[in-house]
Amino acid sequence: MTYDHLPQELRAPMHRAVRLEYWNIFWSTSVVIVMGLVMGQSQAMKTAWVEDLLALVPPIAFLVAARLESTADHSPRFPFGMRRANSLGFFVAAVSLFAIGALMLFESASTLLKQEHVTIGTIELFGQSIWLGWLMLGAQLYSLIPPIFIGNRELPLSNTLQDKLLHTDALMNKANWMTGAAGMAGVAGLGLGYWWADSLAAALISLDIVHDGFKAMKASSAELVDGAPRALDSDGIAEDAAIAVGLLRIAYPDAEVRMRETGRFIKLEVKGARPEDARSPLDIDLPRPWRIDDIAFIPDPIPGLGD
């Protein structure tokens, strides 16, 4: 995969991010297999397994979006290229994150309300009956390690690339290790005779995941409906976008200035002005100048096309 479509400073980070996501898929798949082998009848383990399975969605979405972004040329059918593939991937990843949190919350609240006592039995291994809880604890411990390392590496890359899909995957990895830790606490709690331990831990953690997922869903929906560019980690307006719009409004006080986000790029529109109408010199100096994809000027209403 080549990254010639990206600004020079983003090519190496993008290459690292793609490689990281391949590793992410490899390790996440190994976690899904290990957890599947030992999950038994434990609902908490099943939930954790489904969550690990759903965690594959953001890295796959990222890789698909990265490929589309890099290979799809502008064409009559896609005149703006595939830059928004990343936005679509961000939305898919956000929905997955929210779904995981909601699933966990439902399962754990339902177990708590029904006061279900979960059974973890034994398994015969090499002629010995071993309590399945020990294997579950081992599997959960293993499931903690990849997301901690991968998530920590994704965060700075997502900031450099201004990639919300990658950022959501970092949140997914946070959700993963937190669920793993909750699962361990839960299995250990069950082993100690506290039936409510794992459901309570899972319910508390799922609230945090639901919150992150909802925030990401809001930001990704805004992007898909041409909302103003949002910050990487919140629903607030992105700082560089706000600066650019502010400067354009100073330069063109009588015009309407609008902005929207296309993947990692910002598109600006100045409606009711021509470039040469600027009242002051236009010098947009941003920390990441590559973020401004283009500035379109729409001087006057076009006859027959409304305002």
Binding site: H117, L137, L144, I148, L155, W177, A181, L190
Partner: peptide, 26 residues
């Protein structure tokens, strides 16, 4: 955001290692 996993694992490991598991809920 990623602070604390090591300490969490350590607490869990200590809690688990000192325990006689499994026990009965009732």
């Amino acid at each position: 955001m990623f602070a604390g996993p090591r300490s969490l694992c350590l607490i869990l490991a200590l809690a688990i290692s000192g325990c006689d598991m499994p026990r009965d809920v009732e």
